[in-house]
Design a protein around this nucleic acid. Sequence first.
DNA 1: TATTGTTGCGCAAACGTTTGTGCAAATATA
DNA 2: TATATTTGCACAAACGTTTGCGCAACAATA
Lengths: 336, 336
Amino acid sequence: MSTLKEIAKDLNLSPGTVSRILNGKAKQYRISDKAVATVMAHVKKVGYAPNLLAQSLQASKTFTLGLMLPDIDNPFFSALAKHIQLCAAESNYSILFVGSQENAEREKEQVMKMIGRKVDGIIAVPVSQDTSHFDQVLAKNIPLVFVDRYSSKDAIPFVSSDNRLGCRIAVEEFITNGHTHIALVSGDSTSELVQERIAGYKEAHIQSRIDIVESLIVGQEFSIEAGRKALRTLMAFKKPPTALLAMNNLIGLGVLLEARELGVDIPTNLSLIVFDDLPYFSLLDPPVSAVFQNAEAIGKQAVQNLLESIAGDTPKVKTLIPTRLIRRKSVKTLIK
Amino acid sequence: MSTLKEIAKDLNLSPGTVSRILNGKAKQYRISDKAVATVMAHVKKVGYAPNLLAQSLQASKTFTLGLMLPDIDNPFFSALAKHIQLCAAESNYSILFVGSQENAEREKEQVMKMIGRKVDGIIAVPVSQDTSHFDQVLAKNIPLVFVDRYSSKDAIPFVSSDNRLGCRIAVEEFITNGHTHIALVSGDSTSELVQERIAGYKEAHIQSRIDIVESLIVGQEFSIEAGRKALRTLMAFKKPPTALLAMNNLIGLGVLLEARELGVDIPTNLSLIVFDDLPYFSLLDPPVSAVFQNAEAIGKQAVQNLLESIAGDTPKVKTLIPTRLIRRKSVKTLIK
DNA sequence: TATTGTTGCGCAAACGTTTGTGCAAATATA
DNA sequence: TATATTTGCACAAACGTTTGCGCAACAATA
């Protein structure tokens, strides 16, 4: 474990001098070419790598970004993570990764840990609307950006899909295919993201002058089980929906699984669109139409926001990334 | 940003005393109950959080594990990441996450970065058999464990699925269903993991006294495109295989996609098993049989190995985690 | 009243860097 | 030869902790 000090001692120089040489400040501080040469040679030989802890301590800058995700195993989040990592690496930032597992307690702990580790900024998908866990982050002026989920009331910058529009175009797709009895399987409706999506769902109805029937909006959780349960209740209605929009990939998966068990044929008995596109949707029978969320754009934008913030600029508080409807075969047209 | 020093000054104590109080060493060092009380109260009030950089520097221990994955977006790796993170968190370790993107250069850089950041240990899925990038890690005595992929010649501990047996049972499944002309779509065969899988494939043949035809073993890359290409070449044979084992989920996906385009019906024209089970395999038409890799067990074991190693013990050099064949509908029986 | 023991805490070094300042020696100018 | 300038580097503080040691002040014992 060679250190600056040791190298300095070996070469009969002071640590300061060696430091300046290694940081390319030799000219600036009039260090002799000879000294530079010997240091460089020695360093190459012993394979010196600076202790970034010490550097960080001294500079109070860690070149580390904290990333908190509810569940890295969700394909949307893992895509996000990938691009965030890639983008951060381009600017020489590393990622400290923690998971909240959709658990508020854990979220709080992990936020504290990140603060203790002096990350230069935090990207988080918050568990809930209660963002009080992040108060310390703001109090300490650590740049923070929310991603995917958010809470606009605290003025914390966020990057998300254009959820309202995304849902709206999905519902419009149903409507233009003649559907009027359209179910929405939602997640936790206290979340703003969910409210936006519901708003989009309603907007599409209103614009086409289709009655909104509230009982068709079901579900309170982003999970496979919630998706299954929702489909069961919906199909038990005296007048079941002819179309269904699943609010994320987990719910979509649940709906798909339950449909199979219930013998509900898609799209014959039920048309389906899932919010969030997955690589295998095109392989399913039928191929499932989906609202594509641009995880790459979201991730990159989030990192960029954070870096701006770190640089001292005030980034955009709200960034909405467009979605795209991917038409496959899971929507049946009711129009002859 | 309150620090120990500041708190000490505010309370007219020395930093050392405050430190001992916060670390519960008050009794041990005979600190008065009054001092303890005032410090505790003050700390609560100002919301002090220790600077982990400083602690790490002083203790030369960061409580951080480096995790390097080729691509977090691959479901197998993201499952791995999830459990590694979870398991590490249980022992109060954080994860520094970096991606190699299957790129040797990048791998090298990132390893160096981890070293600089003084991680206490590294879990990696190495890009290739050339593990020279990790020499520095070993030289600095940083505990290292490979996961999934490995290189047994350097005696670096690894945790992986029992690849040989996994492949063998998959092929045996084909054989017991009457198949004798079985293709294997492989990845880069310089990799030991791949060699093991190929060995398993061959073992099954040998045991059942079925001729191994080398031309049925194709492919050199773990990618969707490679899977597509492999299927095209295989189906162009004068005598195409009746069964196919895809060596990972990417290849499997490629095969599935290409089969659809080529009009190759599974399992009528071709039976399929994919090494690596994915949540949606049961949803496909037909549901795809797969070899399940226990990412959770692998991840946990890897972390455990590392922690042992950090604790000074010498962990098992080689840990093989059992796989499980998940039978669905993609294997047709040729036996009447 | 002197001696020993205990209580309560401060001091300072160390971890590995970076950086402002200062000061000799070498060189240039007068 | 004396002064001014430049060259080349060392010193020390600082970042925020932890920890071994030491030293007062006070209490207990003889």
